[in-house]
Amino acid sequence: MSGAKPSSAPLCTTTPLKLQDGSAATDAKVFRSILGAMQYLTLTRPDLCFAINKMSQFMHQLTQIHFQQLQRVMRYLKLTMNFGLTLKKPTSLSLYAYSDADWGGNLDHRTSTYAFVIYVGGNPVSWLSKRQRTVARSSTEAEYRSIATTTAEIMWLMNLLSELGIPIPTPTVSHISTMDQRADILTKPLSRAQFIPLRSKLVVTDGDPILQGCNR
Rank of each mutant, 00 (worst) to 15 (best):
L62H: 10
L62P: 05
Q64G: 04
F67A: 11
F67M: 14
Q69V: 08
L70W: 06
L70Q: 07
L70M: 13
Q71R: 11
Q71P: 12
R72K: 09
R72G: 01
M74R: 08
Y76M: 05
K78P: 07
L79R: 07
T80G: 11
F83K: 06
F83G: 08
F83W: 14
G84W: 09
G84C: 09
G84K: 08
G84L: 08
T91G: 15
T91M: 11
L93P: 12
S94W: 05
A97W: 04
S99F: 01
A101I: 10
D102I: 01
D102N: 11
W103L: 10
W103E: 14
G104I: 01
G104Y: 04
G105Q: 04
N106G: 11
D108G: 06
D108I: 04
D108S: 02
D108L: 02
H109A: 13
R110T: 03
Y114L: 15
A115Q: 14
A115C: 13
F116Y: 15
V117E: 13
Y119T: 00
Y119V: 02
V120F: 08
G121F: 01
P124G: 08
P124T: 05
P124V: 06
V125D: 08
S126H: 07
L128H: 12
R131H: 06
R133Q: 13
T134G: 03
V135S: 02
V135T: 00
R137F: 04
R137I: 02
S139V: 02
T140Y: 08
T140D: 13
Y144D: 02
R145Y: 10
I147L: 14
T151P: 09
A152Y: 14
A152C: 15
A152D: 15
A152M: 15
M155H: 09
M158S: 13
M158H: 12
L160S: 03
L160G: 01
S162N: 11
S162W: 08
L164I: 02
P167Q: 09
I168N: 05
I168Y: 05
P169Y: 04
T170H: 10
T172R: 15
T172C: 15
V173N: 01
H175I: 09
T178W: 09
T178V: 12
T178A: 14
M179Y: 02
D180L: 15
R182P: 12
R182S: 15
I185F: 03
L186F: 09
T187K: 14
K188H: 07
P189W: 06
S191T: 10
